[in-house]
Simulated scan of single mutants.
Amino acid sequence: MDKLGFLDGVARIAVFVSLLLALFLLTVKTENKLANRLFACFIIFSAIDFSGLLDYSFPLEYVNLEIFRSTICLLEMPLIYLYVLAVCYSDFRLKWRHLIYTLPFVVMNVVFMPRFYLQSGIVKEQFIAVYNQMSEVYFFQILIELQYWFYIISIFLILKKYREIYLENYTNPSTSTYKWLFQMNCVFAVMHSITASKNLLRYTASRDTFLWGNVLMVVMALCVICWFVMKALNHPELFRGINSQLQLTKDFLPEENDSVTEVVNNQDEVISAQILALKNYMTEKQPYLDPSLTIQELANQFNVPVRDLSILINHHMNQHFFDFVNEYRIQKAMNILKDQSKNQLTVLEILYEVGFNSKSSFNTSFKKHTNLTPTAYRNAL
């Protein structure tokens, strides 16, 4: 089989598998339907993108569809960006203003209009024949690069804020969502870097080298999409979004000035008393045993406004709520591991007893506080 035939075969498999995965995402029952639909749309547009590598050509009367198909890639990263928002924030909804993310796609098709869409069939054929040398195509490639890296950076910024809000307001299931989406975005960055390098081969290397580059990229893209879908289906606990209305403590702290500093200094004793009362409450009532404890729930139990509790823990105690609660869980786990009468309990039973619901997050937190794994700590005793 020649290279073009091999590329065509790989592309057909990629298109078929992508559409199959998209269909599955659209029909599978899940709590986060919006995220699944956005990701399914991304996969469908990726399949349309892959179809450009098939060994076919549009009839002359439908040649407009080929250029239109090539611009579909400008909708892929906006969909991933919206997907990340839908996964991170449980109250995220699509609104009309989100149509602004289609602007590069619209602009690119407008740019193609004078010298392609509005021309006769013969002129269109000539345009396609020298497609890679047209100024519109150079603009297209620059637009793709700018758009891609804009969304990559934007997603990293969203994840940074998500992680900070999560640590200040939640305790479980660890930061799994952040880690997964961070990995996904890193993969996109690496994949696009390779794709951009491959596209340079169009102008600097032989046609055979460029074709093999296309084969490699389609195979890699297909593997990545399968990995994304399998990860989402096998680990539904990853996608428990937070409320987008939550603020970071630093966002509602008063600005530092002389008068505020003086008031804060005068309140040191009050703050110390509040911290002591909170620690006593945590020790006596043990609210941390609830694996789904949030700062809002603890504020309700402790009978203080959630904003005051957030400032007390995240600012005055200089701890994330996440670490504050897990310290008590780890201390209780250490006491159980020391108790000879409970040495029949397994590590899994202990982690559930102290409020964790994930072995990986328990091991990570335990090692962070003791520099040992739970098993190593028990053996050391």
Rank of each mutant, 00 (worst) to 15 (best):
K179S: 14
W180F: 15
W180H: 10
L181V: 06
F182E: 09
F182A: 10
Q183D: 09
Q183H: 11
Q183E: 11
Q183G: 13
M184P: 00
M184A: 13
M184H: 08
N185M: 08
N185K: 04
N185P: 00
N185G: 08
N185W: 03
N185I: 03
C186K: 14
C186Q: 12
C186Y: 09
V187P: 00
V187F: 14
V187K: 00
V187N: 01
F188H: 11
F188M: 15
A189N: 06
A189V: 08
A189I: 05
A189Y: 03
V190E: 09
V190P: 07
M191N: 12
M191V: 01
H192F: 14
H192G: 06
H192I: 07
H192C: 06
H192V: 04
H192K: 07
S193H: 02
S193M: 06
S193N: 04
I194D: 01
T195P: 00
T195R: 01
A196E: 02
A196W: 06
A196M: 10
A196D: 01
A196R: 07
S197D: 09
S197P: 01
K198S: 04
K198C: 02
N199H: 13
N199K: 12
L200V: 07
L200A: 07
L200H: 08
L201T: 13
L201H: 05
R202A: 09
Y203E: 05
Y203F: 15
Y203Q: 06
T204A: 14
T204N: 12
T204W: 05
R207N: 00
R207Q: 02
R207L: 10
